[in-house]
């Protein structure tokens, strides 16, 4: 229970943002990216507390407004756990400062988009006039040495990955949202990811550009590489076409939207969902429990749109993961085994040092993906275990 004196003095609240979305209000503390959905009456309570009213005054107001007595002690405990209330001696957080906003406004301005449109149109026109510029798997092999191809494509992809993620981050900063960049995984894919939880705190119509900024960047990069290839010859042209192909491949990877790619966030934003993935997984668990006559788990909270979309998204999850499992069993594992066997065969057959090095590099690149994905999965598991043991 809240101490009596706590109820009769104003709380020291950190800077909070409020976004009214009709049936729910999204409230959060932007400097630590802690956001929640509240019913409108809960948001009104929090707003009054953050404006300096004492909890006792707010509870009285609530009773007069809604004719019910609110469990203020429970509410205060929850908002304290969320980090909304400044602890004794803790400095009150102001609205966070966001850098690079000027650059972001320029890069996502109408004139900039006109330039991007011209570049893409130019690349399409150049490809129509010279079909050898079109994406083809042959474009990967711009050099006779597989060693050169492997290392160039592997190392050279990182600037393009950073450009994609940088576009997400900058378009967020244009709206005053901070973000952070890190390595993560989706199933066995290694990904660079931009965490931007604050996106839920801006109106829905403004969320589309930060979500689409990565894909737009991939298209512009592909266009620039294609136009450069059109204007050059030899190895430069070859490398440009190879990177244009791999950039398009990364764009296609976004179609695995059950892995919560950018396309997933686009779909949930269009549909107005707030927790689709978790609600869908929960729906599958409950269906399975019912089928096996086990105890049905409690329903995961979500918005009306989540429950509606979960009816089809839950099946997409099943189909998506099943397809991935089939591809792992029929393609990924056999290919990995094949490459490892190939390395040993070449060593056994007394192949040249170049041939053996060639195979070893390819094998290391392929195996490294699974080793890194496994290490990231282990890190997630350890982090989750630690969080459960120390829920503070």
């Amino acid at each position: 229970m809240a101490a009596a004196d706590t109820l009769h003095r104003p709380l020291r609240m950190h800077h909070l943002t409020f976004l009214d979305e009709g049936e729910e209000v999204t409230v959060g503390r932007p400097d630590i990216d802690s956001y929640i959905h509240l019913p409108p009456d809960g948001a009104a309570l929090l707003r009054r507390l953050s404006q300096g009213s004492t909890p006792a005054e707010v509870a009285e107001w609530y009773h007069a407004e809604y004719g019910e007595t609110v469990d203020m002690a429970d509410f205060l405990e929850a908002i304290t756990d969320l980090g909304f209330v400044a602890a004794e001696g803790e400095e009150v957080a102001a609205a966070p400062r966001v850098k690079w906003q000027g650059l972001a406004r320029v890069l996502f301005s109408k004139p900039a988009f006109a330039v991007y449109g011209l570049l893409i149109a130019g690349a399409v026109a150049a490809t129509v006039m010279d079909p050898t510029l079109a994406p083809s798997y042959r474009n990967s092999f711009f050099h006779p040495s597989l060693l050169v191809v492997s290392l160039t494509l592997f190392i050279g992809q990182f600037p393009f990955l950073i450009l994609h993620e940088g576009a997400h981050a900058l378009s967020g900063r244009r709206l005053g949202l901070n973000s952070s960049l890190r390595f993560s995984r989706r199933l066995y894919f290694i990904v660079l990811e931009t965490a931007m939880d604050g996106l839920v705190s801006v109106p829905r119509a403004k969320r589309f550009l930060p979500i689409l900024a990565g894909a737009i960047t991939d298209l512009v990069v592909t266009a620039v590489l294609t136009l450069t290839a059109a204007a050059t010859t030899g190895i430069v042209r070859g490398i440009c076409l190879a990177f244009a192909l791999t950039t398009l491949m990364r764009l296609l990877w976004q179609c695995y939207f059950f892995l919560r790619t950018d396309l997933y966030y686009l779909v949930v934003t269009v549909l107005g969902c707030t927790n689709l993935h978790a609600v869908s997984r929960n729906l599958l668990h409950r269906r399975l429990a019912k089928l096996l006559r086990l105890k049905t788990p409690p329903t995961t909270p979500g918005a009306e749109a989540d429950y509606k979309a979960a009816r089809w998204y839950s099946w997409l999850l099943v189909v998506g993961y099943a397809a991935m499992l089939v591809s792992v069993i029929t393609v990924v594992i056999p290919s990995t085994v094949y490459v490892v066997v190939e390395v040993f065969d070449r060593i056994d057959a007394g192949a040249s040092a170049g041939m053996i090095a060639d195979s070893i590099v390819v094998a290391v690149l392929i195996l490294s993906q699974f080793v890194i994905a496994g290490a990231l999965a282990l890190r997630e598991r350890l982090r989750n275990t630690t969080t459960l043991e120390n829920p503070s």
Binding site: Y35, D71, Q157, H164, H168, V191, E193, W253
Partner: peptide, 21 residues
């Protein structure tokens, strides 16, 4: 006594896949 329901928002993680060959 009325309890206020509080629900954490979904995390937003915008990604790009790194790929070996």
């Amino acid at each position: 006594m009325k309890k206020i329901s509080i629900r954490k928002t979904e995390t937003v993680r915008l990604t790009s896949a790194a790929q070996p060959l």
